[in-house]
Structures are given as C-alpha cells and as structure tokens.
Amino acid sequence: MKKTTIALLAALSLTSSLTLADYPTKDIQGIIQWGAGGSTDTVMRSIAPHVEKELGGDIILTNKTGGVGAIATKYVNAKKADGYTLLMGAENPQMYKILGLSNIDYSDMIAINVLARGTPIIVANNDAPFNTMQELIEYTKAHPGEVKFGSTGPGGLTSIVTAMLDSQVKLNYISIPYNGDGPALTALQGGAIDVMPAVLGATIEQIKAGRMKAISLVDVESNKLLPDLAPITDALPGMKSYLPWGPFFGVFVKKGTPDEAVEKLQAAFQKAAYNKDFVDLMQKRGFTIMNISGKEADYFLEAYRSTSSWLVHDAGFSKFSPEEFGIRKP
C-alpha cells in the first residue's frame, strides 16, 4: 500500500504541474461507436497508430456499442471535458434528435476531425431483371410490390437513400430489414433481396468480382473506382438538391475541452490523416478523404444534418420535427 501511496502522490504532483503544459500526460481513451470488425472500427484502428506517433502518447481503443451509437455518445459526454476521452464515430448521431434517440448530436461536441466520407451506391443481385437506374424504376413500376429492397433500419444509409428516391418517384416495393449492411449484402448475393443501397466501400470488391451488379452511383458525378457507372442524377436530375451526400467517420470531444488539448488533437489527427498509408487505404475502399476540422467541419456536419433530417422527416419516420431543434431546411 505504501508504494501505491507514493506513486499516487508522485502522480498527483506530476499532473498538477504538467496538466496544461504538456497534453497528453496519460493514455487517451478512444471510444468507438460500433463493434469490432465494422467499418468505423477499421477506419479508427488504422488511423490511431499514426495519431499516437504525432501525439507521443497511447490511445486505448474501446468498442462501446449500442443504441445506434447513442450509448458511446452519452458515455463520452458524461466524462470530464479534459481531452482524454475521444468519441470515434460515424454519421448516426446527426439523426439522434429527430429520431428521439438522444438529445446530444455532433453540434453539441467539438469536431477534432471529420476524416472521410463514403459514397452511396445502389447494387443488385446478378439475376435481377434490370441493369440501370431507369430500368430499375420501370421494372418496379411494372411489377408493384414484387421487388425486394434491402434496408438497415430507420435512420441508416439505406433508409435515407430510399427516402431520396421516394421524393423523386413513387415506387411500390417490399422493404426487408437487416441489421447492418454486411448481412444484407450477403443476403443480396444469395437472392433473398434484389436491390439495396449501400456504401461504395462495402461493395466494391464484390462488384469487381462480378458477384453483384452496380445499378447507380448516388452522387453527382462518376467515381474513379467505377468510371463506367452512371451517377443517379442522369436518371433522376431532381436528386441534385441532396447530393453529394454520404456517411462519414469523425473524431469528437466533449464541449468545454481546453483549447490547448483540442488544438493538439486537431493537429495530430490532421497530420495522421495525410499519412500515405491511411490515404491509400481509404481510397482503395472508395472513401473520399475529408480531413477537415474547425469551421469547415462544422459546416459539413450541419449540412449533413439538415439534408438527412428533413428527408427522414418528410418520409415520415422521424419522431420529432427537425424544426423543434432549429435544424434549418436545406
């Protein structure tokens, strides 16, 4: 016990003299919103070592799943605002307020870095009787209630892309929910569902191998990875008002964190996200590197929130109106 006491006293004296001058003085805990093996987990685990090098301290990564990420968000905001607890998350919190999941979203936190953005793509089973967006629309109209769309639950990427579609054309299809795009894409290959919107990175390898076919890219222009695939705006020009839109990965801290820590973290993440290994990794998986912080990040986050919130609200599956939270109409 004596030893512990000595170490304790030593530690206290150390921290009191060094707290502000030399962030970080202890391990930083990174709370990952999603489970091991998911895309958020993979992105965060691949950038963390580069950040550690920049910061000169360890980041302990912890997966804390549940409530579409709301539990991790709540946890980080319950901790001290000292810059030692980071939230490593995806786009989901931006929908929490209107879905009634939590009263905290990213606008109530400080963005350290919005690392990258994904592009949605619509893919179909190889045997599906359509190959382009136009054909998909015509076929669905000709066979109402027959085409099976995969979905990943309200508020997820698929629900927002289908909400975008619904705002343009009225389609009658069966929606079959899965928990996550992994299981849904597997079901797509097995023929349990016909079509589904997903993020490009999750489908690119399967498309290249010819295990599923790409129908349309949900963006305003084609992507380098699939140069022949037409953007959705060719078939539905009205979609331009929502795009470009896509899920993103970002790192956040609680409001009230000392500026010094925020600046150090922002600098470290910015440098790490420029690392060639990381950039290569992200591009190969079809993610667009953003690497933004500060005002730029806030602007991006706000734009995402307003587009998605109103889409979801207009599609009728929000619990509260975006107006209640002062989310402006896009």
Partner: peptide, 16 residues
C-alpha cells in the same frame, strides 16, 4: 469479421 478488418488495415482487399 475482425479478420477482414485486419486484412484491410494491412492493405489487402478482402473480398471475392
């Protein structure tokens, strides 16, 4: 699933 993430981080392309 975690193995797939690991391959990805090591610069391979897990997939078909």
């Amino acid at each position: 699933a975690v193995f797939i993430g690991a391959l990805f981080i090591h610069g391979l392309n897990p997939g078909p």
